[in-house]
Write a protein that binds this DNA or RNA. Structure first.
Lengths: 196, 196
DNA sequence: GCGGTGATTTGACAGTCATCAAATCAGGAA
DNA sequence: TTCCTGATTTGATGACTGTCAAATCACCGC
C-alpha cells in the first residue's frame, strides 16, 4: 500500500511521463502518436508507459493495428486523495487498527500498543511471543500475498516503522513469516507451522 | 506552475523523503532526530530537507540549539488537488485562456486558435507577427518574472507545447522575450525594445 | 508461407542523485 | 577567547534511469 504510493509518485516524477499523462488525459493514444508528440523514440515511450502501467496509472488495449494506451483517471484521483490524507496517516497509525478494522485479540493489541509509538516501532521485543505479534503485524502492513519483493523493497517498507530493518528482515525469515529465495522475498503460500 | 508540480513530485518520489514527510506529519522535528529515526547521516537528511523545502513542502525555523523542520500541509493538499484536476488540465488548455482569464485582443486570439490544437502548438508560425503572439503566449505560460531558469528547465516547459523546443528557445531570445546569460535564462526586467 | 507495420526488447551511454565521511560553519556556554 | 553541539557544506562513489539505435517480436494482409 505504502509501497504502491512510492511507485506511483516515482512514475509521475518525470517530465516526459507527466507529458504523457497530459496527452492521455485528452484522449487515448498509440505509442507512435505519443512518440511523435514528445519527440522521443518509440522504445523510450514504451519504457515510460510500462512504468506508468506498473503504477496503475495507464492501461493498454490492442486496437489493431495499434495499441491504445489510456489514462486511468481513478488511479490519479486515488493518489491525489492519498496525498491529501497523508498528514492524517501517522495519527491513524497511532490507533494501530487491525488489517480490516476488526478488533485484535487482547494480547496482540496490548503488545502492539506498548511497542509502537506514533506509528513507529520503538524497539524489537526480546520475548519471542511478543516479537512474533509485532513481526506479523508489520508483515501484514508491508507485504501482500502472491507478490515477490526485492530486498530493497522489503527494506523500504520496513524502514517506515523501524530503523533496524536488517534485524526485522532476519527475524521474519527465521519465524517463517517470509521466505527468501535467490535474494527474492515473498509471503509463504500456506504457512501452518507443523511441528515434527 | 507546471514546473513546480514536477519539482514537488520529484521531491515526494523518494523513500527517504516520503518517510521524512511521514515523520513531520506527526510533529515537527530537528535534523538529528530525523537522522536517527531514518538511520541516515545528518548530511543526507539536510540534503533531503533542502529538496522538500525547494518544493515548498517543508519549512524550517531556528529553535536553539536545534533547527525545527515542519511540514507545510497546505502544499501537500495543493499537490493532491493538482493531481485530481490534471485530467481536466488538457481540456482547459484547449480553450486557450488568457493569462488571467481576461479576453485577448482579437488578432492574438485568432492566431492562437489557429496555431494551437488540443493545447499543443501544431507548428511555429512563419510570419513574424504571428510568431510573436505565439511566443509571448508560451513565455507567459512557462516562465514567471524574477526567476532564473536553466536551459533544461526551459526545455521541459516548452516541450509541453511543442516538440521543437530548440527553435522556440532561439526565437524567444531573438525576439527579446527571454534573455540568456551564461547559460541561464530569465524574462527581461523591462523589455521596451528601443530602436537605435 | 512472405512483407510490412507498429510494438517491444536489448545493450550501451550519460546524466542524475542518494549516500557517506569528513570538513566547515554558527551560536551558546564556560 | 576557546570548547561544544548541532547544522550545513563538500567531494567522492555507486546505483539508478532516461534516452537512443538497433534487433526482435506480433500480427495482419497478400
Amino acid at each position: 500500500m505504502d509501497h504502491d504510493l512510492l511507485v506511483t509518485l516515482k512514475a509521475l516524477s518525470d517530465a516526459s511521463r507527466l507529458r504523457i499523462v497530459g496527452l492521455l488525459a485528452a484522449r487515448p493514444a498509440a505509442v507512435e502518436e505519443l512518440a511523435e508528440n514528445l519527440a522521443l523514440a518509440p522504445g523510450t515511450v514504451v519504457h515510460h508507459l510500462k512504468r506508468l502501467s506498473a503504477a496503475g496509472l495507464v492501461e493498454s488495449r490492442p486496437r489493431r493495428p495499434y495499441v491504445e494506451y489510456a489514462l486511468k483517471v481513478d488511479r490519479l484521483h486515488q493518489v491525489g486523495r492519498m496525498l491529501d490524507q497523508m498528514e492524517r496517516g501517522s495519527e491513524q497509525e497511532a490507533h494501530l487498527p487491525g488489517p480490516s478494522g476488526e478488533p485484535l485479540p487482547a494480547f496482540e493489541a496490548k503488545v502492539l500498543r506498548s511497542f509502537f509509538e506514533g506509528g513507529r516501532l520503538v524497539s524489537i521485543p526480546a520475548h519471542e511471543k511478543k516479537r512474533l505479534v509485532v513481526l506479523e503485524y508489520l508483515r501484514d502492513r508491508c507485504f501482500s500475498e502472491d507478490q515477490v519483493y526485492a530486498e530493497k523493497q522489503v527494506n523500504e517498507c520496513l524502514a517506515l516503522y523501524h530503523a533496524d530493518v536488517a534485524s526485522l528482515r532476519r527475524y521474519m525469515v527465521d519465524a517463517g513469516l517470509m521466505t527468501r529465495n535467490a535474494g527474492k522475498y515473498r509471503r509463504p503460500t500456506l504457512s501452518v507451522p507443523m511441528p515434527g
